[in-house]
Amino acid sequence: MNSQRALGLALALTLAAAGCGGGGDEFSLPEGAGSGGAAPTGPAYDPATATASIAGSILFEGDAPEMPPIQMSADPYCLDAGAGTREEAVMVTDDAKLRNTMVFIRSGHDTGLFYAPPAEPVVLDQEGCRYIPHVFTMMMNQDITFRNSDNTLHNIHAFPMVNMQINVGQAIQGMETTDSFTIAEGPFAIRCDVHRWMNSFTAVFDHPFHTTSGDTGDYAINVPPGAYEVVAWHERYGEMTGSVTVAAGETAEMSFTYSEPAE
């Protein structure tokens, strides 16, 4: 009962005013009500502010395990096209660096900014009954184009935990299909159900500070100056983290070392 308050009002208000005056002023619309839909939550990130850089190598200690050749007998086409292909889980360069390792920033970047996805799509090619690249990174809402360069049926079956699964069949050589992932999430696999040996790994980020060690085993990420938690992720050896602080115009060295775990 608002009787006590009403007593105060009683003298002051005429009936009409009491009945029909304002009220409801304490309510407000949710943020972003005007833009109609998902909108950037903050000011846009300016890539020009990334004046610093984090770089380093993914080192591998010890003898690299030998990758077994892939048995492609399930598909006669692959037997030809992919002859001699070996598994790609652990690939070490001659100077003992580990290829195909993701490197990304986990924290330290300004989460209040809106990071626009790159306009150009990521391309995942299927050639010789294997995925190229074997490991890659991308941003949410960035387009990803699947291409089938083989003359056989492939299907691209992504196994994210958070995003919707994708499973697209590509029966024709040269076919391209474009899709995207809308939510950031950690590394997950992309497989072909027709050719069970085919796999590729990716991760979806809500920021642009990620890369892989590619073919060389080296990486570099341009970032705004600041302190960051850097993560390396490898499909077999898992995750390593490190912290780094970098000033404008400088390059911080941040290397990770993996090794074959003792059996």
Partner: peptide, 9 residues
Amino acid sequence: VWMIVDDYN
């Protein structure tokens, strides 16, 4: 007046 306001409000 109080009664009406109280009843109305």
